[in-house]
Amino acid sequence: MNKRSSWALPYFIFLVLFVVLPLLLIVMYALQDGSGHFTLRNITKFFSDKDALSTFALSIEVAIENTLLCVLIGYPAAYILADNKLNRSAVTVVLFILPMWINALMRTLATAELFNMAGIPLGKGTLLFGMCYDYLPFMIYPIYNQLKKMDPSYAEAAQDLGATPVQVFRKVTLPLSMPGVWSGVMMVFMPTVSTFAISEFLTNNKIKLFGTIIQENINNSMWNYGAALSLIMLVIIGITTFLQGGDQQEEVSGGLI
């Protein structure tokens, strides 16, 4: 029995080499100057750089707004999809997750072109709409999964004990579906904070998000500052993951197909 646990060893080595070491390298490069000496200047540069700071704030703002928008639109959709009385077709569910499999850049470009054709100027409004459109399936799917797993007898019991439909939803269904909502929030918030191509397409380069700054620095060989910016993003991710409670991921992403 014990011998087979050693089968995890190759993957462990792989993870150390390709996940742990690269993350440590972000920290290392962030704390070095161009010639490899220790410095905090990259970090202080960010905090004294007004442009970078306002881009950072805007990215967080857009990510929060986009996540809220996805919850508001996605939750009702997931609820209807999971309800046996309201929806019995498995095909509808597939239609909702299908866009996840289509090249996101292409979909985003098409969205931007649609706005152009309709004469809507590209800016923050189109950015939010386009991002919501890109990430909505990632919100709907985990919530739908969670609701499907829920034992319907809880809601029935609440009903039998005299709860109104609104009470049943607020006190039983909603709290029980929260793990799904949190997974969806993680799947939407993280990519939104860090995206670069999508925001460039949807605003015609008018609005820069944090990801774009990282990309520009890395591509212009400013590795140390780029690494420092990545480190700041890593901290944000760490905090969000910690707040979310960490390990509910396993169950939700498990059955994507």
Binding site: L15, V19, I26, G211, G226, A227, Q249, S253
Partner: peptide
């Protein structure tokens, strides 16, 4: 604990946004 460590490490690439995975591997 060993299982916990592996599960944790296995979760990192899924939680990391693409750009972090990309930049970190670039640096590697």
């Amino acid at each position: 604990r060993k299982r916990g460590v592996m599960t944790f490490l296995n979760n990192i690439p899924m939680i990391n946004p693409d750009i972090i995975t990309g930049v970190s591997l670039f640096l590697l």
